[in-house]
Nucleic acid binder design. Structure first.
Lengths: 135, 135
DNA sequence: TTCCTGCCTGAATGGTTGTTCAGATGAGGA
DNA sequence: TCCTCATCTGAACAACCATTCAGGCAGGAA
């Protein structure tokens, strides 16, 4: 997933002391601005986790699966039929969604029923739909 | 970006008529469930657009950039310093964020100042942070 | 005009992801 | 026990993405 290459940049410290004159090796940096903003910058850890979460949502097939699960629980073979994918492919994608706790599942007989994990997902979905509408 | 391979599956029609007996070529599908859910399934088009949007957010470097832009506007070189990336890399990533209208920018003298595009982004961010907190 | 600076872009490379096929697991029924 | 069905998993290949380096472009100053 979003293990996009290496991220070895910690929030980190700057020369620590005043004078907003150009000090940085490259470019004319506004040191005061940079210092002001740095505490707000996500830690590499958190950025990584969040990136993995979004990465799970960054595939049209997985989004279709989620939209199919919005109204009700479905088992894997029903899901496959609903979004017109192979069952193996669905299974693989469901694993990704599970790993980010976007879906929950329960076994009933020989079927496994999947559903949306919680309400944040729906809220998030609406937020994005809103943003995209204003294209 | 999330142009993840080909997506050639339209919502599509099923045999159209009743009897929830197994009809599908593979597996024992619950036809009634499938039909009930199908209208809710995202169209390929919308799924694609949404996937591209999430894909823009699925990289830790870009998330760091966004978090740095949350409190205030910054020019490219300041951004680069704040998240400790090269300016070229920042520029590439900003292009991705621009393409999804996650950031806006304005030129002032020789600097280009970037900022968050709108309030949906902040709301979305909070939603996800909430979800991840409940790990 | 010429130089310098801040930013953007194109191309090449190495890592990552999604798909497919084959086989494995596990539950239910005979 | 054996068989079948629903689902999961592993491996391999093709497509995609992020990074780097090099160079290009536009604004400001002299």
């Amino acid at each position: 997933m979003a293990k996009s290459h290496s991220v070895n940049t910690e929030p980190a410290q700057l020369p620590t002391q005043s004078t907003d004159a150009p000090v940085c090796a490259e470019s004319l940096v506004h040191l005061d601005n940079v210092r002001q903003v740095q505490p707000e910058v996500l830690s590499t850890e958190k950025a990584q986790r969040m990136a993995e979460f979004f990465s799970a949502l960054s595939d049209p097939h997985r989004l279709k699966l989620l939209s199919a699960l919005a109204p009700q629980e479905l088992c894997v073979c029903d899901l496959a039929a609903a979004v017109k994918m192979g069952e193996s492919a669905v299974s693989h994608q469901l694993r990704v969604l599970r790993s980010q706790r976007l879906v929950k599942y329960r076994r009933q007989g020989r079927n496994v029923y999947y559903g949306l994990a919680d309400s944040h997902i729906a809220a998030l979905y609406r937020e994005v739909a809103e943003h995209l509408k204003e294209s």
